[in-house]
Amino acid sequence: MSEVLVGSVLSALSTGVGALLVLFLQNSLTHKFRDTLLAFTAGVMMAASMLGLIPESLAASGSIIPMAVGVLLGVMTLTVLEKNIPHIDLEHSKSGIQFDEKAMLIIAAITLHNIPEGLSVGVSYASDTEGTGNLIALAIGFQNAPEGLLVALFLITQKIKKWKAFVIATLTGAIEIVTSLLGYYLTSYVEFLVPYGLAFAAGAMLFIVYKELIPESHGDGHERTSTYSFIVGILFMIFLIDLF
């Protein structure tokens, strides 16, 4: 219990780590840096899904059906959220970063988008394989950091002070702690849900990688750098999987 709590807190609060950069880098942040970070995150999440969660789901069920159902449920959940809840999209412009102007709606949207990510962390800790939860918490943490940065930057454009933007951006990730514990308890006490939960997490992460992270990292003319960063992210997560 203590491990899942610590992992979920660290993963959720990594949103604040990304937001912390606005206190120092607001005027020097470049699109190339952002795109490189997003691509690295995509690589980490891709490797975590394909080499961690999906094999764990197959091993837990002994059948491809729960894995396939779980992946599709994860994709469908993110599809519904993406269609019905707006989120921050950076305008691809080398001259600067521009945001949608509906501040409170955007904050609520980002918070709701964090629900499946928290569930991913929780069900991963319910896996029988030691270290899976920590690896997925790390992968989600890498995804949360640039998200926190974008939220904080958006809030600053709405004339909110830097430190307030940092606090609000950090709090948007706090819901992951609650949903992580929920996912952990559900899959721990209802064991047949474990393979579905692991695959659900994989499907949600793969959706984020292909629908959000990769396209956003390729919109400003930094495709080659982003591709290299994506591959480095994959190798980094493979190294961690092998290490743990």
Rank of each mutant, 00 (worst) to 15 (best):
D100F: 03
I97V: 10
I136K: 06
L53T: 00
D128H: 03
T157R: 05
G62S: 03
D100A: 07
S49Y: 00
L81Q: 02
P86Q: 15
K102E: 12
L90P: 01
E82W: 11
L149P: 04
I136Q: 05
T111P: 01
D128A: 13
G148E: 09
V80Q: 04
G122T: 04
A59L: 11
K161Y: 02
S49V: 05
D100E: 11
L81Y: 02
E147N: 08
I107F: 05
A59S: 14
I88N: 02
E117D: 11
Q98S: 09
A137E: 04
V75T: 11
I110P: 00
G133K: 05
M104P: 03
L73Q: 07
P86A: 15
I106H: 06
A47M: 13
I54Q: 07
S120M: 07
T132M: 15
Y125K: 08
I140P: 10
S124C: 05
S49P: 00
S124V: 07
I156A: 08
T129K: 13
G74M: 09
L112F: 12
T132K: 09
G122F: 10
K94E: 09
A48M: 08
M46N: 02
L53S: 03
V121W: 12
L138A: 09
V80Y: 08
V80E: 06
I115T: 06
Q158R: 14
V71W: 01
E82H: 09
L90T: 08
F154P: 00
T111S: 06
H92A: 12
Y125R: 07
E147W: 03
M67F: 11
S120R: 06
M46Y: 06
E101S: 14
V123I: 05
E130A: 09
L105F: 08
V121L: 11
I136N: 07
V151F: 04
K102P: 07
M104S: 10
L112E: 01
S49N: 03
P66K: 12
L112N: 00
F154V: 12
L51R: 08
A109E: 06
T79M: 09
K159F: 04
H113N: 10
I106T: 14
I140H: 07
L119K: 04
A145G: 01
E101M: 04
A109N: 05
L119W: 10
L51P: 01
N114K: 09
I140W: 07
T77V: 05
L138Q: 00
V69N: 05
L72D: 00
E117S: 07
K159S: 10
E91N: 04
A108T: 12
K159R: 14
